[in-house]
């Protein structure tokens, strides 16, 4: 089967990539929705979708780096809430200026990420356990000290919409490219360039693939752990600040429970839970798939209760297909390589 022709080999390699499967699924589902739900493919709906899911996409970019490094983090939604709420407190109670508030929020997020890294690297707690513990600690403390009260009087600089580009469609709908969308694109582009083109990014892939091998070729594992979890903390805080910007208030438990949705999107996009594997486009495709499903079903008037069933089925089918197809590929590769090794 292999080495028959380069193009065929390329095709089989493509078939093994989760991104290819995901794109196919997205096209099929997109086509179904485009035919059944009238407004689905309209520009306003697409832009609206982008803005709604930008917060999750930004968190997913951070989570992607941690997943590639071979770890897992459940606490980022709690981190985002804590950073958002603390920043909101600083802005409303102390009346600090915008740069200071944003800086404080981002520092809190990065700091919480680094605490995770310290627990995992220095204290050697398994990453899922450390982050579950950190999630319960930071979220419970937030709920305890805030008393579950939302902050509504955010300053204007925070809640005013920032519009980069504005146009009107033929039907008279307003289409706006707003701050969350632009931030999401910058973050995605940066994460992609950083993880594929820089030395640190390559080192994170190496560490996720085989930590012991990475350590022996002289990669500082500890430093990279702090980079990965710190980056996720930073992204979570950024997402938290943007979420408050979008909805115009800070609700302590607004982002609670988004962690599993983001995690499933990242894993749908081919980021491996055992590390070393994953791409930025794949993770974005995972987010797109979940966003499309929810939006399309909403437009079709399907009960929002039904959405969870669809997510469940999607996760089960797409992960099974991904794993089964890559396993078949691996078996072929082993069979194919056997004679050359002998």
């Amino acid at each position: 089967m292999p080495e028959s022709s380069p193009s065929l080999a390329g095709l089989t390699a493509l078939r093994r990539r989760p991104e290819a499967w995901l794109t196919a699924v997205i096209i099929v589902i997109g086509a179904i929705f485009a035919l059944t739900a009238r407004d689905f493919l309209s520009l306003p709906n697409m832009i609206d979708l982008l803005e709604t899911y930008s917060v999750q996409a930004i968190m997913a970019m951070g989570l992607f780096v941690v997943l590639v490094s071979g770890g897992i983090d459940i606490s980022f939604a709690a981190t985002a809430s804590v950073a958002q709420y603390c920043a909101a407190l600083l802005a409303t109670q102390l009346g600090l200026p915008a740069p200071l508030v944003i800086l404080a929020g981002l520092v809190i997020g990065t700091g919480l990420g680094c605490v995770n890294a310290a627990l995992i690297h220095n204290v050697r707690i398994t990453s899922i356990i450390a982050t579950i513990a950190m999630m319960s600690i930071s979220f419970s403390l937030l709920m305890y000290f805030s008393g579950g009260k939302s902050i509504y009087d955010l300053p204007d600089w925070w809640t005013d919409r920032v519009v980069f580009y504005e146009t009107e469609t033929a039907e008279g709908d307003l289409v706006r490219i707003t701050l969350p969308i632009v931030t999401m694109f910058i973050v995605a582009l940066f994460t992609w360039a950083w993880m594929t083109r820089s030395s640190i990014g390559r080192q994170i892939y190496a560490m996720g693939g085989n930590p012991e091998a990475a350590r022996r070729i002289g990669i500082g594992i500890g430093k990279l752990q702090f980079v990965a979890y710190g980056y996720l903390g930073f992204m979570a805080a950024l997402a938290g600040l943007l979420q408050a910007h979008r909805v115009g208030e800070s609700v302590p438990n607004a982002m609670y429970n988004t962690e599993l949705a983001v995690l499933s999107a990242a894993v749908l996009g081919g980021a491996s839970l055992s590390g070393g594997i994953g791409t930025v486009p794949g993770v974005l495709l995972g987010i797109v798939l979940l966003a499309m499903l929810q939006n399309g079903l909403n437009l079709l008037g399907v009960s929002s209760y039904f959405f969870q069933i669809v997510i469940g089925i999607t996760i089960l089918i797409s992960t099974s297909i991904t794993v089964l197809s890559s396993r078949r590929g691996r078996r072929h590769r082993i069979i194919a390589e056997a004679p050359t090794n002998a």
């Binding site: 599993l260 995690l263 499933s264 894993v267 839970l273 055992s274 969870q308 069933i309 997510i311 469940g312 089925i313 999607t314 996760i315 089960l316 992960t319 099974s320 794993v323 089964l324 396993r327």
Partner: peptide, 15 residues
């Protein structure tokens, strides 16, 4: 299927 149990059960939980 060999899919990681976290993912399988995340799917069944959601379902």
């Amino acid at each position: 299927t060999g899919v990681h149990p976290i993912l399988v059960t995340l799917g069944t939980k959601s379902l």
